[in-house]
Each structure stands twice: as structure tokens, then as C-alpha cells.
Computed example of a mutant assay.
Amino acid sequence: MKIEILTEKNEWDEFLESVEDYGFYHTFDYHQISKSETDQAVLIKYTNNDIFIGLPLLIRKIEGTEYFDAISVYGYAGPVGSKTPLNFNTSNYEKTLIDFFNEKKIVSVFDRLNPYLTFQNILFSNLGEGSYFGELEYLGKIVNINLSNPLEEQRSKYQRRLKTQINKANRLLSLKVAETKEDFQEFQDLYYANMKRIKAKKRYFFSDEYFEKFISSNDYITEVLLAIDNETKKTIAACMFVKTNTMVQYHLSGSDEKFLHLNGSKFLIDQMRIKATKEGYKNFNLGGGLGANENDSLFRFKSSFSDEYHPFFVWKLIVNKEEYDNLCNKNKILKMSSSFFPLYRLAEHK
């Protein structure tokens, strides 16, 4: 039984090549473009005989203290590794992680789990006993289109209104795959306009460098599709999709407000569904609602494509409760004021 901390691309890539399944959220490149200048991206590799588990995290300095905390990248990450037996004893894994967190003076850990890797919940189900406090929290459902099914069967799951909208869009719109710098710039412009329209927080306005590094990475396949209005020849919507192993992920999108009635984003999701099925992908993850809310308009938009859902959990762990409470008190935050985690960073989140 041993633990290794992987921080270099070659060793990170080598580990991922050895596991059964992973998403682009687990890759080295995505961690590098997601972290701030002061964060450290690590993959905590645990080995016990023929079982190995890797937990990718961003370790962050807590300003004004000697302590740190850890968080997963935005998306669906969590641990990946070899196939664990049903009777896998998690106690050694738990102790190894806690010892590492204490050694590195990590006060708390927040991890967004991957809905397609069910063994993640087993690893963390008991990690909340003793002098530390942890929990798995269910945040809602994410929508999946099962690409293993025939195309017509997939489409039969569409809500009636969506079918009508797609039929109309197929008559009025044309598909273009982004290839040039100008194509990608059109996507960015539409994405930024979308974020302004919904009054998104500043952290969702990604930099030009972010997009350049994302699209140029070889750790995964990024495709941007554009919807062109046949009448005006104008690009009225654009979506970014990411492909890894057997998975396609709907990542970012934007639409021209003047052409929302043409349902460009829905048209592009449908086009990617057809394209990815022909290419042999098995699942198309559309994600969930805003903040995993199953009652908002974003979730209703996505669930109009499919009735197949996967549960989305996050893992919250307080390693050092005394220091966690001290930080909350220092920042004058009441413990019951929010479900945000870690609570002492609440002011930074607003």
C-alpha cells in the first residue's frame, strides 16, 4: 500500500492510460487551464496490490494562514482507477487520504463526482467518521442520451415540442464545423453574449487563453459546431462539445438573441447526437440544471432530449474541524448561513 503525488504531464497521462474509463475532466491539460496561478494541480495515486485509484484535485492556499484546501475542477471529476471488487475495503484508502490531507495542512476537500463512475460513491461513503467530518450530497440529475441505441430510438425520447422545433430548424439552418480562427471567435462572441444575457458570474467569462489552450489540447477532442441561418447566412448559435473515450460532453454554448426562435442550440445538439452515434460513442452527457436544480429552465431544456438520468453527487470533507471553525469565525460567517462549501470561502463566491 502506497501513495504517490503526480504533478507532471507524462506521469499523469500514463496513469489515465492504465484506467478503465475517465472523462476530459480528469485530464492533466484541463486541470492546467482550470487552476489559478497559485493553485497546484495534483493527482493523488493510491496503490494497494493490484488496485490503484487516482484522485485529481486543485490544492489552494488559504490566504493569511499556513493552511490549504482542495477542490475538484469544474465539471464531473472524482476518483478514477482500476476495477474495484464489490467487497473492496475502503478503510486503508480512507486512512491514506486523511494522512495525506493532514500532512499537507489541508483543512477541507470539495469534489464533484462523475455520474457515470458509480464506484466513486462507495469510496467516499464512510469517509466521515472519527475526528473528521464528511458527507456525500445529492445535488440532482444529469441528462444522458444513450448513443448505443439506434438513432430513431434516441429521437423517440424527444418531447413532442422538441421534435417540431428540430424539424423546423433542419429546414431553416445549416451546420458548419468550426475550423478557422474566425469560426472559433464567432463561438466565443456568442458565448460571451449569452453569459451577459443571463448575468453570469465573472468566473464564467473565460479568457482567450483559456479557449486557445482548451481547443488545442490533445488530451481530448474538442469540436465546435455552428448553426447558420440559411436566409441571412449569419451564425446564430454555436456549441462546444468534448469527446473522451466513449463519452461526448455538451460543454459551452451561445446563441444570438435575435434568432432564439430558430432554436439553434437544440439543432446543434441534435446534429452532434447523430454525428457522435455514427462515430461509435456510447453516451452523450448534456449535464444538469443551473446549480443541479431540476426545476429550472436549463434542466427542462436538456431533459426535453432524453428521459435517461444519472444522479449527481458532491463530496464534502472537513479534515481539520477546529481550523475550519476558526476560519468561519474569522470571516464572520454563521455555520447555518449557507450550504456553500467550504463555508469560509463564501464571500469569494459571491
Rank of each mutant, 00 (worst) to 15 (best):
I62G: 01
Q154S: 15
V224L: 02
H349P: 13
N295G: 09
Q165I: 14
K350Y: 13
K157E: 14
S297N: 09
K35Q: 06
V107Y: 01
E129S: 12
T84F: 10
E14N: 14
I33M: 06
K181G: 13
I269G: 00
H251T: 14
K282H: 07
T164Y: 08
R112Y: 03
K258D: 12
K282F: 12
V224M: 04
F88R: 02
H251G: 15
Y158M: 11
R155V: 07
I44K: 02
I142Y: 01
Y46A: 02
I62A: 00
E4N: 13
D50R: 10
L346I: 06
L55K: 01
N263V: 05
N144L: 11
N114A: 08
K176C: 09
N295I: 11
F259R: 07
L151E: 06
F68I: 03
N170E: 06
S91C: 11
S207I: 08
I71D: 03
K196V: 10
R197T: 12
L252I: 13
K330C: 08
T27E: 10
K9W: 02
V42E: 12
V143E: 07
K83R: 11
F206V: 15
H261V: 15
E66W: 00
N121Y: 06
V73C: 01
P79W: 04
F68Y: 06
E4F: 12
E223S: 12
S337A: 15
Y204Q: 03
D256M: 07
Y309M: 12
G288A: 00
E66I: 05
Y344D: 00
D183K: 07
S304E: 09
M272P: 03
L226R: 12
M195L: 08
Y281I: 07
N149D: 08
R197E: 11
R300S: 15
L58S: 07
I5F: 08
Y22N: 03
L136T: 02
D229R: 10
E4P: 04
L57S: 03
E209M: 10
I98K: 05
L6D: 01
L147T: 03
S304A: 09
D183I: 00
N167Q: 15
G134T: 06
N329W: 00
S255P: 10
F88G: 01
I122R: 14
A200D: 06
F205M: 08
S306A: 02
A276E: 00
G280Q: 02
I236C: 07
L252H: 09
F259E: 11
K350S: 15
G54K: 04
F24C: 11
I3A: 02
D21Q: 14
Y191M: 04
M336D: 13
F184G: 01
R60F: 05
F299L: 06
F312L: 05
D183Y: 01
L173V: 12
K2A: 14
L172Y: 15
E63P: 00
N146A: 08
Q40M: 06
I51S: 01
